[in-house]
């Protein structure tokens, strides 16, 4: 199994990430608009921003893909003039690292639903850490901070975890993922069985 990223892996990851960055760009005004209402209703849709990482990883299944996808999506949104600017790149970095850590804990070999949800939590925790510096969230009243954390975690598990998982499952049915995934041991086994 080749572990290093080839140009093919990178290009496909970036294309997926860019499609998501267009969605992110449209998501931004929606998020800001809901945000004016307060009470962290906006946090329920925050999870959308981590989705590029899990979707790209579930499709290509190699180390480094989740991080690259988040960074590329942030870069894409930034190039289209996304409203949060340079901060996006740093958020992309911590969120991607959050996902990457979880996938690494399973040695990049588990692609189950609960691992995807854990990765979503990893990304959410990464974004919360940066929010302490950027948004002073630790200075919110305690009930409000709790609401924020719970809403963001729930939103990201639903969108980044569950939704991304079923989206990739539906993509698998189209057969497009077969060509680009690295060959697994199962594939070698099947080949050997055929040879016999």
């Amino acid at each position: 199994m080749r572990k290093t990223l080839t140009l093919t892996d990178i290009l496909i990851t970036i294309v997926i990430a860019f499609i998501f960055s267009v969605i992110y760009k449209l998501w931004g005004p929606l998020y800001s608009f809901i945000g004016i209402l307060g009470l962290h209703v906006d946090q329920l849709i925050y999870g959308m921003w981590f989705m590029a990482a899990t979707v790209a990883f579930l499709i290509i299944r190699k180390p480094g893909i989740a991080l690259l996808a988040e960074l590329a999506a942030a870069q894409g949104e930034f190039l289209f003039g996304g409203q949060w600017g340079i901060s996006l790149l740093l958020y992309g970095l911590v969120q991607g690292l959050g996902c990457e850590l979880i996938f690494a804990m399973y040695r990049y070999k588990s692609y189950r639903l609960y691992v995807t949800c854990l990765a979503a939590i990893g990304a959410a925790v990464g974004s919360l850490l940066l929010d302490v510096f950027y948004g002073y969230i630790d200075s919110l009243a305690l009930w409000n901070l709790t609401l924020l954390i719970v809403a963001r975690l729930v939103g990201s598990i639903l969108i980044t975890g569950v939704f991304a998982y079923y989206l990739v499952e539906a993509l698998d049915k189209t057969g497009v993922t077969k060509a680009i995934r690295p060959v697994s041991n199962d594939d070698y086994q099947r080949l050997e069985d055929e040879m016999r």
Binding site: T6, L7, I10, L11, I16, I19, L167, V176, T177, I180
Partner: peptide, 26 residues
């Protein structure tokens, strides 16, 4: 919307990447 768009883009990206590798872009 998402599934045909993603599938089609992945296929196209794959084709382009293979030819880019052949032309030593990497």
């Amino acid at each position: 919307y998402a599934i045909p768009l993603l599938a089609q883009s992945i296929r196209r990206a794959h084709r382009i990447a293979v030819s880019m590798e052949a032309k030593q872009f990497s």
